[in-house]
């Protein structure tokens, strides 16, 4: 790390995005292996991929995170179909923009907890909006459950990112 090679900015961007995208894809596969709790409603997920998006925003940039989001949506399109892709894309895009706002645009520094919860909440919110547009059912009751659930899942993803973050910073060329 001391004698950093000069690497083209585009190459760095490409490599970082590729690494983080692969992390996102692996996390969303791993998430499917976790058995859902009996109380969980459909759509209630841990949102592990938010961790990678958070890392992309924190150590790279917004364009990098947006590329990660698009690749995640494409992955969902290939493996789970158009409906899942639309919901994944809307949720992750909203979460990314919200977390970007909290990480970059503000004078105050939010902690991992706040960023994680905001990400989880906005993810659910985006999915609800798509569900409302596609199914047009009464979704407000569902929103209550999902926003309360996002408090728990967001706290967890924030904690994971808090633990992983120092190790990420140690990787050369990652930030």
């Amino acid at each position: 790390m001391k004698d950093k090679l000069r690497i083209n900015g585009k190459t760095l961007f490409l490599t970082r995005t590729a690494i983080l995208s692969s992390v996102v894809v692996v996390l969303s596969i791993a998430e499917n292996f976790i058995p859902t709790l009996p109380v969980a409603l459909p759509g209630m997920k841990l949102g592990l991929s938010n961790i990678a998006v958070m890392a992309a925003l924190d150590i790279c940039s917004l364009p990098c995170a947006l590329c990660v989001v698009i690749i995640k949506a494409l992955f969902a399109l290939v493996t789970r179909g158009a409906m899942a892709a639309a919901m994944s894309f809307a949720g992750t895009l909203l979460a990314t923009l919200g977390m970007w706002f909290l990480i970059r645009c503000s004078k105050v520094r939010f902690g991992c907890l706040g960023v994680g919860i905001a990400g989880a909440f906005l993810h659910n919110f985006g999915q609800i909006i798509v569900a409302y547009a596609l199914i047009s059912d009464a979704v407000f009751a569902y929103m209550v459950v999902l926003s309360l659930a996002s408090l728990a899942t967001g706290a967890l993803t924030g904690l994971v990112y808090y633990i992983v973050m120092p190790h990420l910073y140690r990787v050369p060329y990652m930030h």
Partner: peptide, 24 residues
């Protein structure tokens, strides 16, 4: 971002928490 380590809990997080609870 690299200079200062992000804390797990910072005071502004309270606003995020309360916002989510209010929406609920």
């Amino acid at each position: 971002s690299s200079e200062k380590k992000r804390k797990y809990f910072a005071f502004p997080d309270v606003f995020v928490l309360s916002f989510v609870v209010i929406v609920a």
